[in-house]
């Protein structure tokens, strides 16, 4: 490039300004964004450099837009997966602690596995609203499926029984295994006021007896029938 002065027509300068302005607003497809360099003078080199700059800027912008689009799509897919996982978790939670209407005014809830704070809140929420809705008199919490009991799980169960009692129903724990009983004795959880029975069958017999206002004898078929189903 020579050091000589360059005289340029004002329209060429104006075209550059327009093209750069269009590029600054992402109007790369506009005809006004196209610079056609005049190769006969040094100003043409500036036009050529700016034309190439705008072309490369358009490609870079398109690449960025595509990446952003893909990222947005990936985020949407991830959100959808999380939504599905949440729904599945809720279903699993519901299935793992079913509330069974075992008899008139008698609900039973078999508890399986450990209970963390979140699960305890869900169980408590579901059980207490079911007790209130159905006007249950008795709730049998069956721990047959609980192999190991830690302090937190035990505390959650105690609170659950207290909640049931506050609603005016009687809560009975059943199916406590010898290992769980041993653990419970060592954990120091306050079980006062929590009624326990050896089996679900025994608890059911007790509840039916109370409902009928007398102790159920061994000969009462109405009591035996549901108990044998276990």
């Amino acid at each position: 490039m020579s050091n000589s002065r360059v005289t340029v027509d004002a329209t060429r300068i104006r075209r550059l300004i327009t093209a750069l302005s269009c590029a600054s607003f992402d109007r790369f497809d506009s005809d006004a964004a196209v610079i056609t360099p005049d190769e006969t003078d040094d100003f043409g080199m500036l036009e050529g450099v700016l034309a190439m700059f705008i072309d490369e800027l358009a490609v870079a912008r398109a690449t960025t837009e595509r990446a952003l689009g893909e990222s947005e799509q990936a985020r949407a897919e991830l959100e959808e997966r999380l939504r599905v996982i949440d729904a599945q978790r809720a279903t699993i939670s519901e299935l793992s602690t079913p509330i069974i209407d075992v008899w008139d005014q008698i609900l039973t809830m078999p508890i399986i596995g450990t209970i963390d704070t979140q699960r305890a809140a869900e169980i408590s929420d579901r059980l207490l609203s079911t007790v209130a809705e159905r006007g249950a008199e008795f709730v049998l919490l069956d721990l047959t499926g609980v192999a190991v009991l830690d302090t937190a799980t035990a505390s959650h169960i105690v609170r659950l029984t207290q909640g049931v009692r506050l609603l005016g129903a009687e809560c009975i724990l059943t199916g406590i295994s010898p290992q769980v009983a041993q653990t419970l004795a060592m954990l120091g959880v306050d079980w006062r006021g929590t009624q326990t029975m050896r089996s679900l069958r025994e608890a059911l017999r007790y509840c039916l007896g109370k409902l009928r206002g007398n102790e159920i004898g061994e000969e009462d078929d109405d009591v035996r029938t549901p108990a044998r189903r276990q």
Binding site: T18, L20, S21, C22, S24, F25, R27, A32
Partner: peptide
């Protein structure tokens, strides 16, 4: 402002 109004003029 020139950049803005130049684009307005092209559209």
């Amino acid at each position: 402002v020139t950049m803005l109004l130049e684009v307005v003029a092209t559209e």
